[in-house]
């Protein structure tokens, strides 16, 4: 990863510092597309911005999702459920 800044300060000579927060998850949110109305409320409240919009549809990505359950709690149509991660 390379970031060259136009500012005088160095921006991360070795790139971006990141932690594999996907490993923290004990439960994963799974979206039921039959119930989903594509309102985007889950994506708006996801603290990690793990829910992205692709081809006008919201999908959950699991790379950094910490499994907090805010999307499940805030969904107006109960279209998201938490299921336990395997091996945890």
């Amino acid at each position: 990863m390379k970031f060259k800044s136009k500012y005088i300060v160095p921006v991360g000579a070795d790139g971006i510092y990141e932690i594999d927060t996907g490993k923290w998850r004990t439960e994963r949110p799974v979206m039921d597309k039959d119930k989903c109305i594509e309102c985007g409320i889950c994506a708006m409240y996801c603290p990690v911005f793990s829910i992205i919009k692709e081809d006008e549809k919201y999908i959950i990505t699991y790379d950094y999702c910490k499994g907090c359950g805010i999307c499940v709690h805030e969904c107006p149509k109960d279209a998201i459920d938490m299921i336990p991660e395997e091996g945890k």
Partner: peptide, 8 residues
């Protein structure tokens, strides 16, 4: 030497 943001 790593930064946590893409801005200074």
């Amino acid at each position: 030497m790593k930064s946590g943001a893409k801005v200074p």
